[in-house]
Simulated scan of single mutants.
Amino acid sequence: MHKILVVDDDKSIVLMITEFLKIHDMKVIQAFNGKEAVELLDESIQLVILDINMNGLNGIEVCKMIRENYNVPILFLSANAAQHDKVLGLGVGADDYITKPFDPIELVARVKAHIRRHEKYNKNSRGNMVTVFDEFHVYRNAHKVIKGEEEIYLSSTEFKLLLYFMDHRYTAITRKQILADVWESEHYDENTVTAYVKRLREKLKNDENDQEYIKSVRGIGYIFEADATTLPYQATSINLKGKPVR
């Protein structure tokens, strides 16, 4: 049974979501403010549904705190349909965004899709391996990306997208293909891929105009270009905190 943390200071929203998730055989942990959410979160939680506009500790702040320790998928809820609010939410590490009022059936479908993708990538990760290119060390099992001695924080969807690109490097891939293989859902369009690629580029770039790794292919989509090597974790010289191993 999947375990979902639902966070909203509107109790009626929490109760409604709880009932729909229970119908689909999911266990719900309820939180009615940001402080409760942080206290209740642990390794057993498989997805977080998080309202942005809460009193006290808001959803943006909670998301940032979650991302310090967990790579669990995060789905934002918001009454604000503005593009700026959506970009802000995704920019701090959320994996998805749905605007109130929403269709509970669509919400459940998105929850299932994110959990399925998360489990698939965990299962298919190449054991305790690290992929190395230039200054970057990508730890598959730990869901960590280290550049030099600093960690680059990616949401779970950003991390999955990076793994997908690395596993298909030097191959031109269409947005439609990326959407089908990474998102595995009909609830998104190709603009979703464009937005996530932009964010991933921003986090990997070495300078203001850098598109060194993820390059656009006119009329097709994208290509990832980097000479990468995948090795057992023990064979690398960087530990998971980004510090050199002595």
Rank of each mutant, 00 (worst) to 15 (best):
F159P: 00
I52K: 01
I49M: 05
I178R: 08
N55M: 07
E184P: 04
Y70M: 00
E19S: 13
P101R: 10
V193C: 03
F76L: 15
V193A: 00
A228T: 14
A94V: 11
D96A: 13
D25W: 01
R67Q: 12
S216C: 03
K241G: 15
K3L: 13
N124K: 14
Y188F: 12
K160C: 07
V7E: 08
H84C: 09
S12K: 14
V92I: 11
N53I: 08
T194W: 00
T99F: 08
I23L: 13
K22C: 06
Q30D: 02
L41H: 13
A235W: 05
E135I: 11
V193G: 01
S155P: 01
A31C: 11
V7Y: 03
E150R: 05
V28T: 06
T18Y: 00
N124I: 11
D96F: 07
K11R: 15
I238W: 13
M16Y: 01
K243D: 08
E225L: 14
G221H: 10
L107H: 12
D210S: 15
L200F: 06
K123C: 04
L161W: 02
R140F: 09
R169Y: 07
G34P: 01
V72H: 01
S156K: 04
E135N: 14
M129A: 15
M129W: 08
V193P: 03
K215T: 05
N206Y: 10
K22L: 04
A81E: 14
N53D: 10
D8G: 04
D51V: 00
F224R: 03
Y222L: 10
Y139S: 04
A81Q: 13
A195C: 06
G148F: 11
I214L: 15
R218Y: 04
Y233H: 09
E68G: 06
W183Y: 15
L179E: 04
G34V: 03
H137S: 03
M26A: 04
P104M: 08
I66N: 05
T230L: 06
H118D: 02
L40Q: 15
H168F: 02
E225A: 10
V111T: 10
H24G: 00
